[in-house]
Simulated assay, not measured.
Amino acid sequence: MKENEKLRELVVDTLNELHQEATDLTDDTPLGPAGLDLESLVIAELGMRIEESCGAPFSDEDMERVAGQTLGEFVAEMAERARAGAAAS
């Protein structure tokens, strides 16, 4: 669970730095058009920071799927990938 909290904080901090509306976010907040409506450049920056921070891979296909995820789903998936990457190392 600690990894999830770290990644959630990273996502929220990144959104704030990129001047996105990141107040009152819950795990149920959609990242796509029904919620935050994140632009592709913001999603790419999130992916890059997650890769740098914890080694969770983030591909072009992942960028397309983010719009259909909630904040909680995105964080949980990235945390799982980070754990899998750490276990494989």
Rank of each mutant, 00 (worst) to 15 (best):
L15A: 01
R81I: 05
L7F: 14
R83D: 09
V42P: 03
E77K: 04
N16Q: 15
A56Q: 12
L18H: 05
L46Y: 14
V42Y: 03
K2T: 06
S89G: 12
A79Q: 07
A56Y: 13
E5S: 08
E45R: 11
S59W: 02
A86L: 13
E17F: 06
C54G: 12
E21G: 02
A22Q: 00
T23D: 11
G85I: 09
P33I: 06
L46M: 15
D13C: 06
L10C: 00
E61T: 03
S59F: 05
A56W: 10
R81M: 05
V66P: 02
R83L: 11
M1R: 12
G85D: 10
G55N: 15
G32A: 00
A44Y: 06
I50N: 07
E73N: 10
M63P: 00
L38M: 04
E5N: 09
G85R: 13
V12K: 08
S89L: 11
L31W: 02
G55L: 15
S53Y: 12
A82T: 08
T70H: 04
E52G: 14
M63N: 00
G32H: 05
N16D: 14
F58T: 03
M48R: 15
L41G: 05
D27G: 15
D28F: 07
A76T: 14
A88M: 10
I50S: 13
E3H: 01
L15E: 05
N16T: 15
S53A: 15
D28R: 11
V42T: 09
A67G: 08
E21R: 06
L7K: 08
L7N: 12
L36R: 05
L71R: 05
H19I: 00
G55S: 14
T26Y: 03
A82D: 11
G32D: 03
L10N: 01
A82N: 14
D37F: 02
T23E: 13
E3M: 15
D24H: 10
A86S: 15
N16L: 15
H19G: 04
D37V: 05
E73A: 09
K6F: 08
E52I: 07
E3N: 04
L46I: 14
L18S: 06
V42R: 02
D37P: 01
H19P: 02
E77S: 10
C54W: 12
E39F: 05
L71D: 02
T26Q: 07
E77T: 14
Q69R: 06
E51Q: 12
L10D: 10
V42K: 05
R81K: 14
L31V: 06
F58L: 04
E5T: 02
T14A: 12
A88K: 13
G68P: 06
F58E: 02
G55P: 14
V75K: 09
P57I: 07
T23W: 07
E9Q: 14
A67Y: 04
M48W: 13
D37M: 01
E80G: 10
E9C: 05
P30Q: 07
N16H: 13
T23Q: 12
L46A: 10
A79T: 03
A84W: 00
L31K: 03
K6M: 08
E39Y: 01
A34M: 03
K2I: 00
R83C: 07
S53G: 13
E80A: 12
I50P: 09
K2S: 08
V11G: 03
A22G: 01
D60Q: 03
E77W: 10
M48F: 13
F74W: 12
P57C: 09
S40C: 08
G55K: 14
D60H: 03
L36Y: 01
Q20R: 14
A34V: 02
G47N: 11
E3C: 08
